[in-house]
Simulated scan of single mutants.
Amino acid sequence: MAELKTNTFKAAIQRMELQRGLWCTMSDPLAAEMMADCGFDWMMFDTEHSPMDPVSLLPLLQAVAPYPVTSIVRPSCLNAAEIKKLLDIGAQTILVPYVQTADEAAQAVAAVTYPPAGIRGVAGLTRATQFGKIPGYHKRAREQICLIVQVETREAMGNIEAIAAVEGVDGIFVGPADLAASLGYPGEPNHPEVTRAVLDCIRRIRAAGVPPGILTLSQEVRLQAIEAGAVFVAGDLDLAALRKGLSTPD
């Protein structure tokens, strides 16, 4: 019989062990497979700000599966039906965007948890269950599912401790881009006031005993975030790396 796959990313961040990752918005399986072997601890497949959907995401999950990298998937929003589908096709780590309150965090927890504790719909012949070959999957799945919620507004900043206290939240990600807009600095994620707010959020999340995370293209902010206690950190996006690597034509 098949075994329930261990979520090494979840185990690592529970130990507060630094995990470095890559943000992915391209829907090409060959590119995903290449990036999976580049030494990152995790790859975050973004269906919120990209054309990706569950149909185009599935071959990406399959492409990276043989490699020692964790796939994280961001749904388009806090939508239980969408999250259910992402879990069924094999995602074990979910990053829910735009969570602003403890109640919304609790809704996210329910979405990744089977009844009676949650509302995740039950199906048997899914990729997540290895098509029915994992014994006791539905009773044990939540052990290896990692739920990260994203704080990215002024309101969410004020609710960090309450969000962190929600049982079942395994990590909190700070989104500098949307937070910058919420604070009055749209398009300026590295504005000094935004950076101060981001670092304050990271310190408060860590003080609450929850692993904090961040994506920033600024090496300076990234190093400051790690010093402040960030545990899962991304410093690049696939499209940004591709563009940087291309030579400007003469």
Rank of each mutant, 00 (worst) to 15 (best):
A241G: 00
A105G: 02
Q92A: 04
P186D: 07
L57A: 03
Q144P: 01
L242W: 11
P75E: 14
F9C: 00
E161T: 14
P249V: 13
A207W: 02
G39V: 09
G90V: 11
T216I: 09
I119F: 02
S218L: 04
A80E: 14
L239Y: 12
L239A: 08
G21S: 06
G136Y: 07
T93E: 12
L215H: 14
N190A: 12
I134S: 08
Q92L: 12
A102T: 02
L4S: 06
I94D: 00
T113K: 02
V112R: 08
N159W: 09
E155W: 01
S247M: 13
R127Q: 14
F232G: 01
I94P: 04
A31M: 13
E143K: 09
P186E: 12
G168D: 09
I163H: 12
A234E: 00
I89Q: 10
T101Q: 10
Y98I: 05
A208M: 11
L86G: 12
D200Y: 03
E155N: 05
V112K: 01
M43E: 07
E188W: 01
Q92T: 12
T113H: 03
S27P: 00
L87P: 05
I205W: 06
A228L: 06
H138K: 07
R206A: 13
N190W: 01
L86K: 08
P189I: 11
G168S: 08
A12K: 01
D103F: 04
T47C: 15
N7W: 03
L18P: 04
F131R: 14
D41N: 14
W23A: 02
A225I: 10
F45M: 11
Q130C: 03
Q14G: 09
N190D: 15
M26E: 11
Y185R: 02
L242F: 15
P116A: 10
F40I: 03
A12F: 00
A180G: 02
Q144F: 08
Q62P: 00
P212G: 05
P189M: 07
F9T: 01
E220A: 11
R203M: 07
I148V: 14
L30C: 05
G213K: 10
G171L: 12
G136M: 06
I134H: 15
P212Y: 08
A117C: 01
A65E: 15
F131D: 08
L57H: 09
K139W: 06
E155H: 08
M1A: 09
T153P: 04
Q62D: 15
R154I: 03
T93P: 04
A208H: 09
G171T: 03
K139Y: 10
D88G: 04
I160M: 00
G121M: 10
I160G: 02
Y185N: 04
L179Y: 09
A141F: 07
Y67G: 03
Q14V: 00
G118M: 06
V174L: 09
G124W: 04
P192N: 14
R196H: 13
A180I: 05
